[in-house]
Amino acid sequence: MESFSPHDPDLARTLILDELFDLLLYKALRDVTQPDVHETLDELIKVETGHLAFWQKFFQLTLTRLDLGRRIKLTVMMLVCRLFGSTAVHLVLEAIEVHGVRKYLAIWREYQGQPLAEALRGILMDEFKHEDTLVTALTQRKINAEKIRNIFLGLNDGLVEILGAVSGFFGAFGSATMVLIAASTTAVAGALSMGAGAFLALNSEKEVKSTEAARKKFLGEAPGEPPMEELPLSSALVVGSAYLIGAVVPVLPVLIGATDALFSVLTAGLMVVLVSTILSFLSGMDIKRRIALNLIIITVAVGVSYGIGILAKLVWGIST
Results as ranks from 00 to 15, higher is better:
161 E>N: 11
153 L>N: 11
167 S>K: 07
131 E>M: 15
101 V>N: 00
118 E>V: 06
177 T>W: 12
107 I>V: 08
169 F>H: 07
144 N>C: 07
107 I>D: 03
104 Y>E: 01
187 A>T: 04
166 V>N: 09
134 L>F: 14
132 D>M: 07
169 F>K: 06
183 A>T: 04
129 K>P: 00
103 K>Y: 02
133 T>F: 15
138 L>M: 15
108 W>S: 01
176 A>V: 10
134 L>V: 13
170 F>Y: 15
178 M>H: 10
113 G>A: 05
107 I>G: 03
130 H>T: 14
179 V>N: 09
169 F>Q: 08
101 V>R: 05
148 I>N: 06
191 A>Q: 08
167 S>P: 08
189 A>F: 03
190 G>P: 10
163 L>E: 08
155 L>T: 05
151 I>Q: 02
187 A>P: 05
143 I>R: 04
188 V>Q: 00
155 L>V: 06
168 G>T: 10
108 W>G: 00
189 A>T: 04
118 E>T: 12
183 A>E: 02
163 L>C: 13
162 I>D: 06
122 G>P: 07
180 L>A: 13
119 A>K: 11
119 A>M: 12
147 K>M: 15
100 G>Q: 03
102 R>A: 02
176 A>Y: 06
120 L>E: 02
134 L>Y: 14
182 A>L: 10
133 T>L: 14
126 D>L: 12
136 T>G: 09
176 A>T: 14
159 L>T: 02
183 A>K: 02
136 T>M: 11
195 G>L: 05
184 S>F: 03
